[in-house]
Design a protein around this nucleic acid. Structure first.
Lengths: 165, 165
DNA sequence: GAAATAAGTCAACATGGCTGACGTAAAATC
DNA sequence: GATTTTACGTCAGCCATGTTGACTTATTTC
């Protein structure tokens, strides 16, 4: 991993550059979550609900264990928000057919609508940033972000491939 | 660089690309905060303390109003963590000389050490990602991240310039 | 002198993490 | 077939960190 391609680019990493990287993440995440948070507050839900709705939308039929793996929170923490979402009919549960202990989660129509509304603000923000930056910058953005993410989760971003998921 | 295509660049933004952008931010932030959070837990502090220590280190002599502007939380929320940090002597307060109502905040030696320990994990993560990605990718990363951040705060990342700060 | 500003404080509340303990049903293993 | 493991759920309580609202004090500005 150390060999960044010998040659003309030693890439001096000054304290200042790293500090800036930290701050970019702080401000970007702060602003990225602000809009959905405000919408959620109006319907009595929170950011945790958004995350669940998002990932259930992303992986329809995901089971609880897998969802916990993504969110990296405890079962009890998830239970609270998931319970809200199921009782308010944003999310439907059904037993797995292969393994009937599993609860497979999907968005209801209502859930899909919520997901779209919430994430649209974020999609718009990303779209605008991508457009303003251009395709090459977007490639660089992806590469650096992947480098920041723990190696175990990088696979999620690989094109289809032989994934074991 | 990949094909940046001369001429007008419509930059096709598929749903899929935007979704990926959202997830990159989620996973990156999750992993970026995990290490300092674990260290903080051991000394009975939390992420909010880290943020305060970080920005006081970044802007020595910052006053409370300015800090609130960065963190975007309420005075009461800040009071709690700031109180902890002052009473445990991570942060020192002194009255402003020009405006004696202000409390100017600085890190003590102890505070500097804490800041360094916490942020080093983050700096290392960024450094590794930057090195693996290369200088051009880092430039793209910066550009996109700035586009995601609200325009008001982009100025913080401009080189010195005529800033009014 | 009055008004505005910087900061602090008290109280109450919500959200979303956590640990620990325990239960049930189904699947996997010996 | 009995035992163990797994997937999920649940109760109870704690902690960190955000919120609103009301009020005080010191200082600066108008």
């Amino acid at each position: 991993m150390a060999d960044v391609k010998s040659g003309p680019n030693p890439l001096f990493l000054r304290e200042e550059d790293l500090r800036q990287g930290i701050e970019l993440l702080f401000y970007a995440y702060r602003d990225f979550t602000a809009e959905p948070d405000a919408m959620l507050a109006k319907i009595g839900l929170g950011r945790a609900h958004h995350r669940v709705v998002y990932f259930v939308g992303r992986y329809p039929g995901i089971n609880v264990t897998e969802l916990l793996g993504i969110l990296q929170i405890t079962k009890q923490s998830l239970a609270r928000v998931l319970g809200d979402l199921v009782s308010q009919e944003y999310i439907a549960q059904r037993a797995g057919t292969k393994d009937r202990r599993q609860r497979l989660l999907t968005l209801t129509e209502k859930g899909q609508e919520l997901e779209r509304t919430l994430s649209d603000a974020q999609r718009a923000r990303i779209a605008q940033a991508y457009r303003a930056a251009g395709a090459a910058a977007v490639e660089g953005f992806r590469t650096v972000m992947l480098g920041i993410i723990d190696a175990d989760d990088r696979a999620k971003f690989q094109p289809p491939g032989p994934g074991k998921r």
